[in-house]
Amino acid sequence: MFVQSFFQNLLNALQWGSFYALIALGYSLVYGVLLLINFAHGDIFMVGAYIAFFLATLLLGQYAFALPFALPPMAVFVITVLLTMALTACVGVTIERVAYRPLRRKGASRLYVVITALMCGLVLENGNLMLLGANRRSFPELLPTAVYSISGINISNIKILVIIATVCVFLLLETIVRRTKLGMAMRAISYDRMAVPLMGIPLDTVIVFTFVLGSSLAALAGVLFAIAYPVLEPYMGALVGWKAFIAAVIGGIGEIRGAFMGGFLLGFVEIFVAAYFPSTLRDLIAFSILLIFLSIKPTGIFGIARATKI
């Protein structure tokens, strides 16, 4: 019985951690390149979920006008995911262009950019609330849920999908960062921001690329989250966003594998604390663990303390 509940929780933790990991990756990517905590990122995730909602309902013909053709469910899913990623990336890049870049050009202290990011998050959240109202939206069923029971452990196809998608994204990102030219440029920027433009690397292109990557990952997390927990509301991004940021930091912010590990770690802590303690203690215990962890290892799991040369 114990073993069963353990493995059930493990699976849940993997799924829950996947969402954190996907969003944390976006934080880490942007941080690695710009040293900017993009606090609007959690809300980008929310925007992604909403875009997916409108696309899915449109494609499923749930509006007043029906589409002239009916698409097979799988096609609807794939189109939704891809279009959502593309559109959300546009939102992310727009924010970069409109709010962050001018500040960067003016040489503002990076903390002012962080505050601007917080403001952008508020605009997205409350803009959504203003336009669409406070009522929750239920996400249409894109994929038929199937639950397999293996020796008492419930495994749904959606959980498997989420976990596999996250692992694939991680591997893909690692490859992009290590093997492609743009990825290497991203790494170069995180080492030395001043030297990169002098070496003829187009700084702005790399930054835009980073935001495209980060935002589309948040969008992917949004779609998957909406499929797994099909209730959408404007503030869904805020708390998840903060926690994903924490995950990114636990892993060592700026590190891709750090964000990945940190996301899963936070997922595990939260699910297991909730499973074995009263749920009201979840935040208390999770954050106390975080506090102790960071006091012992101040730069996160993979973060390396930059030695200051004097």
Binding site: I246, V249, L290, L294, G300
Partner: peptide
């Protein structure tokens, strides 16, 4: 990292 501690 300290920011996270204050958040926590």
């Amino acid at each position: 990292y300290l920011a996270i501690i204050t958040l926590a």
